[in-house]
Amino acid sequence: MNAFTYATAHSPASARQLVADKGAYLAGGNDLLGLLKEYLVSADILVNIKSLPGLDKIERGEKFWTIGSLVTVAQIEDHAEIKETFPGLHEAASEVASQQIRNVATVGGNLAQHSRCWYFRHRDTQCLKKDGDLCYALNGENRYHSLFTGNTCISPVVSSLATIFASLDATAIVLRDGQETRQNMAELYQRAWENPLAHNSLKNGDLILRVEIPTTRSRSAYLQVSDRHAFDWALVSCAAAADVVDGKLKSPRVALGSISPVPHQVETANRFLDGKVLDNATATQAADMILKDAKPLEHNAYKVPLAHALIRRTLLKLKGDA
């Protein structure tokens, strides 16, 4: 990796100042250090943000819960009340990587992580995402790539937390230019939909402070399937959340990961599900709607039936026994 200086910040404002225009924030470091070592990212300063006060807390609220950006994935996984209140969030957290990684991986880092596309990650391919001329995956080895995209890069978002947060309609609070801005998951990734160079909508120096999860959805679920049982990236992940009143879905949201540069959400499907009693036929119809515009490529078309199955199963999980 290239040489850098290192500083520890004690307030978000000083972190922002230290990181200036060529630095990077360092929390768990799972993604950043790999990117630096492969010379995929270069930073003149690493600003340790692990000492920022108050960002490592999970706070319950009547209307919403707040999860600090320095909360580790393991903290979420192990949190008994999260398991009860947002079971889907517990499930998503427990599917992230391995126990060792979850112990240090933070919520902010999970949301801000870069593409895992193997062309992007390869030291000797100059792909679109690295300001090269073409997407190698488009006509190449695209088994792990997107079914949907708004641009010519087909690397998908892989954050499990973004997927479940999208279904829970959570909001990220991001410090930008000295102001706290609010972005839901669609907004947090919108730029990756439009711009092949982007992994998310964060601008240089933006710092995720916390995530707010509304308590309006009492049911949530998350499922993913990988090539193997040992820790592995999802081929497709799916999250669903809703309230259930008199057996009918209220404010349902479905989101999928690993099939689009953004958490894949189809509002018409959410509206269709609203007020419905869940059964296999309804879930199937919703899945059809969610995947209607999929553009499968040579090697990733299997994701269509896989996503279809996961949407149905995740939705039916919302029914639960409760």
Binding site: D227, L235, P296, L297, E298, N300, A301, Y302, V304, L306
Partner: peptide, 18 residues
């Protein structure tokens, strides 16, 4: 034998559109 190949063998995979 990957999930992709299982689904293909079962005839569940649609054709590529691109």
């Amino acid at each position: 034998i990957t999930p992709a190949k299982i689904l293909a063998a079962l005839g569940k995979v649609p054709p590529a559109t691109a």
